[in-house]
Design a protein around this nucleic acid. Sequence first.
DNA 1: CCAAAAGTGTTGTTCGTACACCCATGT
DNA 2: ACATGGGTGTACGAACAACACTTTTGG
Lengths: 231, 231
Amino acid sequence: MRGNLFAVAVDLVVLTVRRHQQRDQLCVLLVRRGERPFESHWALPGGFVQADEDLGDTAARELAAQTGAATQGAVQGHLEQLAGYAAPDRDPRGRVLSMGYLPDLPDLPDPEAGAAFLPVEDVYGLAFDHDRILADGVERARAKLEYTTLAAAFCPAEFTVTDLRRVYEAVWRTEIDPRNFQRKVTSTPGFLIPTATRVTGGRGRPPQLFRRGPATALHPPMLREPIPVPV
Amino acid sequence: MRGNLFAVAVDLVVLTVRRHQQRDQLCVLLVRRGERPFESHWALPGGFVQADEDLGDTAARELAAQTGAATQGAVQGHLEQLAGYAAPDRDPRGRVLSMGYLPDLPDLPDPEAGAAFLPVEDVYGLAFDHDRILADGVERARAKLEYTTLAAAFCPAEFTVTDLRRVYEAVWRTEIDPRNFQRKVTSTPGFLIPTATRVTGGRGRPPQLFRRGPATALHPPMLREPIPVPV
DNA sequence: CCAAAAGTGTTGTTCGTACACCCATGT
DNA sequence: ACATGGGTGTACGAACAACACTTTTGG
């Protein structure tokens, strides 16, 4: 069998929306490397594929290790492959191919020591080519908000339409008309399930609380820009 | 460095539209394997990543080897990564990770001996997990017709609106209203460039001939189904 | 003239945007 | 009362489906 031999790794782009510097921001889970190369640099969590593992197995195992094993069951089937990265010089130790993975999962617990959620806008200089993998993951997540119900996974178990809108606004860095957004998401069957309770204590009219519905696709999709008119 | 070692390969899903059994059909380039395992089975063209090659380099090299080196220059930058496949038992020789690639290229010459374009609908039982890779490639190509001008790459250098429509119909296995299709594609700026010549010899009114324009995106996209109403 | 294929005009519907307006609560 | 945020109604426009209709060739 011709060809060079590679170590194969999986790197995770774990995204969430957190309040940072007085606004909701898209954040990514990073870990501080404890060994060379890139010792003490931030990096995406990940690890090598072991014997008898498929890529998704490795991704699920690493995800459970980083975010608490409790979520492992719910994680299966919600891991999306991003792309493969295999530039000859991407790892000084030798040839390593890394597969990027993007998990779609509900709101996450706070990270352990040595790990943190940092706003993607402030992140530069990650280890290896992780800046690139992160950029691809963010772009994929942005695209998925358009045609899937992924945004609801960034919210807590119960949330308001405004919470959901803030997810879109944080991920896309745009402003969305609250009134049209309301109609759009509440009229999509299976996206949001109303609960009996309402929120109290806020300033205005108490909003309705919703849970995630069974729908995964958005038809028609949510539009990201005010239509790029082709003239 | 922990983890198992893999050979890394690239497999190409080279698609084209050809006339087969009296109708235009989406066909894929396959090669007959000359060695074990899966000797004499059909397989996707591909090969192993060599030293100092990145994945795209390997894909471009294999593509040039299979379709004639003449196209190599035009091929750069038109290779889209599909996904990585690394099931532990996908290759009996040992652990092999394969990256699928989908080239977007203009109409192709006839294949060499030992290779053929076969209708994707008739293809089963390819070597390794190539049935799966093919299915992923076909689905990606179908999706790309919606929002890119890829369909024009399946046509000869000069083509009619009807030629272009037949590409959509062959790839999507649907029927499209010729009149609305005409308006849609001719009104998208940069998609089609009219030429001075017209076709003669056909049965009805001679159609206008077009060349591929510079546009790569389709805004708004071409719709694939009569809108899957969510009720 | 007639059939066949190319191409245009028109109408109804769906869906998004913009924005006026009403609702329900805290202060 | 009034500010604040939640939520509804409505008018306008863009784009698509459906299909009648005109144009231009070959037989």
